[in-house]
Design a protein around this nucleic acid. Structure first.
Lengths: 164, 164
DNA sequence: ACGAATTGCTTTAGGTCTAAAATGAAATTG
DNA sequence: CAATTTCATTTTAGACCTAAAGCAATTCGT
């Protein structure tokens, strides 16, 4: 993987990138399956969408509130997206939004009392659903998967920073 | 993991589902990172969206064409979604769509000649991007991740079938 | 302090996605 | 064979999402 042997590799070791591609597709399949299942259960059980749940999850971890930029970074979605998402959650009374007094560009949002209560109920069930979906994996599997995905995360970030 | 000790577990081992939740969040992060990077590169390099690329990838593997239902199942997205996606690819000349002569409900779609050529070019680069993103993982890591994600896939499907 | 860059958010245009209802074709059933 | 059901697809209504442009507030360099 150093610069030196990358040339060597390119010639002698041919371009066998199929394994990584298959790995990526499998990773994507797992995520899609879980996400779809969570989405459908959230809808049936609580009549809430996944993005709203995710946003509330971020806010639940931040009792002092977050700025829209914070949320956007944490959720890894675009700024413009958050504006509309928050607007709907404000309308439904789950989220409180106010302009910062220190910097009038900034909107600080936080869960309302009822929003937090409702989220906690959903989160409790959600956690059980997830555990259920991973229940065929032993503790060791979970640890190992966690480790390998951690490594993957770093690897992807490195490639994204250098190449994009 | 047997049926027998599942009861024992439930009582003595409390409800520590945090590990699985963290695992899920990490899995989601990895997928989101890779997907975002691929999306942005496809856009910059080929001015194509990820869903279009994905659909073309499915069609490339099926020289005799696919029905919209086939595509919908393979891509794990809703039927209605495919209709619009295909329509745009037909408009841009990448995909050919015709009604089946055996069953007039069915639409058979396939890549056009130019659509296939264009896809192959994109796919070649795409494969390199993916390999690059996983490049910090050794062969052993890749194999192990593949195995664990396979196990995860089965586990999720089981939970989805029984619980949903 | 003052113009330029930056930052935080919103708006816009357009694509993607879902669930649910609707349409039309084929298969099944009494 | 007519009525019903099933199946493939489309339509609808609405939410989600991005990239890019726009706006307003702040900060920076001088």
């Amino acid at each position: 993987m150093t610069i030196l042997d990358s040339e060597t590799k390119a010639t002698e070791h041919s371009d066998d990138h199929g394994d990584e591609l298959r790995l990526w597709l499998r990773l994507l399949t797992c995520t899609t399956l879980i996400e779809g299942e969570v989405r459908s259960r959230l809808r049936e059980r609580f009549d809430v969408t996944l993005p709203r749940f995710d946003l509330m999850a971020q806010l639940d971890k931040a009792p002092d509130g977050m700025t829209l930029s914070d949320v956007s970074k944490r959720m890894m979605v675009s700024n413009g997206n958050i504006t509309g998402l928050v607007e709907r959650l404000v309308q439904s009374g789950h989220v409180d939004r106010r302009t910062s007094e220190v910097d009038r560009r900034v909107q600080v949002i936080r869960l309302t009392k009822s929003g937090r209560a409702e989220f906690r109920k959903m989160a409790a069930e959600h956690e059980i659903w997830i555990a259920e979906m991973f229940s065929d994996l032993g503790e060791k599997d979970v640890r190992e998967l966690m480790r390998l995905l951690g490594k993957t995360k770093l690897s992807v970030r490195k490639a994204a920073d250098s190449g994009g």
